[in-house]
């Protein structure tokens, strides 16, 4: 179980608190939707949960232990802007194979074109890059996924394609997911449970 316990965070001591005593837990196979207006700290929470940021108060635990400080992190994040998440000076192939060799079946399911692998990120569209980003986090060592507005900038068809692949893999491997979005119908479609940020923040 991935668990955030009374997590508090702010970017510096003279800035306002973004998270204050926020708790949430995700069990394997569960897909939790996090719904709320932009600018309220959803992404910051995702970063804390994935270990990119250290909480100031409270703790994040994976199966009762803190996240591993070194090596592969079993909690992986998919970002809203793939063009900012992939090293612009690496070819697509290098970025994709950085951690592992994705099986051909996955490449096919995501309809990745082998021609892309020698190109650089700026030569692909955002939709194409987001497919690469999804393939990249589906390393077999990944156990929890945080999808932060993963398909906000994509058209409806590409959005459905990406989610279909991700939901298949998540079901097979019993991945736990946190889905951050302000698109209510999408959350209702893909999640097993939805947390409303505004209500949650008031009660804690």
């Amino acid at each position: 179980m991935l668990k955030a316990e009374r997590v508090s965070f702010r970017y510096s001591p003279n800035r306002p608190w973004i998270l204050q005593g926020f708790s949430l837990s995700i069990t394997p196979g569960e897909r939790v939707g996090l719904y709320g207006p932009s600018g309220c700290g959803k992404t910051t929470f995702g970063r804390v949960l994935a270990g990119y940021l250290q909480p100031i108060g409270g703790k994040v635990e994976l199966d009762g232990k803190p996240l591993p400080p070194k090596g592969y992190c079993p909690v992986q994040m998919i970002f809203q802007h793939p063009e900012l998440a992939i090293n612009p000076r690496w070819t697509i192939g290098k970025a994709l194979y950085e951690a592992y060799q994705p099986p051909p079946s996955l490449l096919e399911a995501l309809s990745l074109d082998l021609h892309w692998f020698e190109r650089f990120p700026h030569e692909l569209s955002n939709g194409e890059l987001q497919r690469i980003a999804v393939a990249r986090v589906l390393d077999p060592r990944t156990r929890y996924l945080i999808a932060d507005e993963m398909t906000t900038m994509l058209d409806a068809n590409t959005q459905a394609q990406l989610w279909q692949v991700l939901l298949d893999v998540a079901a097979q491997r019993q991945l736990g997911m946190l889905v951050i979005s302000h698109d209510r119908p999408l959350l209702e479609r893909v999640c097993t449970r939805i947390v409303d940020w505004a209500m949650e923040a008031q009660t804690t």
Binding site: A156, P185, R189
Partner: peptide, 9 residues
């Protein structure tokens, strides 16, 4: 393919 419809790509 919209999530509020069938979500079939």
């Amino acid at each position: 393919s919209l999530p509020q419809n069938e979500f079939i790509p």
